[in-house]
Amino acid sequence: MHIPDGFLTPATYLPAWLASAGFLAGFLKRLAGTLQDRAVPLMAVLAAFIFAAQMLNFPVYAGTSGHLLGGVLAAVLVGPYAGAVIISLVLVVQALVFQDGGLTALGANIFNMALVGSFLGYFIYAGLVRVLGSARRLWAAGAAAWFSVVLAAGLCGLELALSGTAPLELVLPAMLLIHLLIGLGEALITVAILQAVFRVRPELVYLS
């Protein structure tokens, strides 16, 4: 759901730019004081993996494809702050080098997929772990991954409607509906990778 240039009006993309820049600056400042040593190589490998995985569109439904966003995957492994930062970094490279997502829309894309998809996604995960118990943390991660994609898609639909690009009553349900399915792929991939990491290298995982 990388929004290209032209879909959003300045009244929508400028506030999104400001909000994303503000949040990211705060995240970086916080990380500069707290980043754990073990998170450094993991952040690089995760960012590389998520970039690669985002190129691998899988068919979802009747001529529509989706791909991993990786927000919850990243945040569970390196924490919500570092998670949002590496998803943002992936989005910046995609926009600048590959025109995947617009430059004017970059703030909105970071807001949807990094701040909501990864940062907020982490707290959905953490809340579910608290409710379900840590023995069911894979279920929590899967549910949070699914939810993060649906939330990001809903937000994207709202931004399109705010820009007058499409009527809210059409674009919001359309975005939500297709991402209910894409989110299932997100959940499956997230759970599969986390299961492997939890089993093989549990000491790599972020501790809040």
Partner: peptide, 9 residues
């Protein structure tokens, strides 16, 4: 080999 179908958006 990735699907070339359009994505959700």
């Amino acid at each position: 080999l990735a699907s070339s179908w359009p994505d959700g958006l």
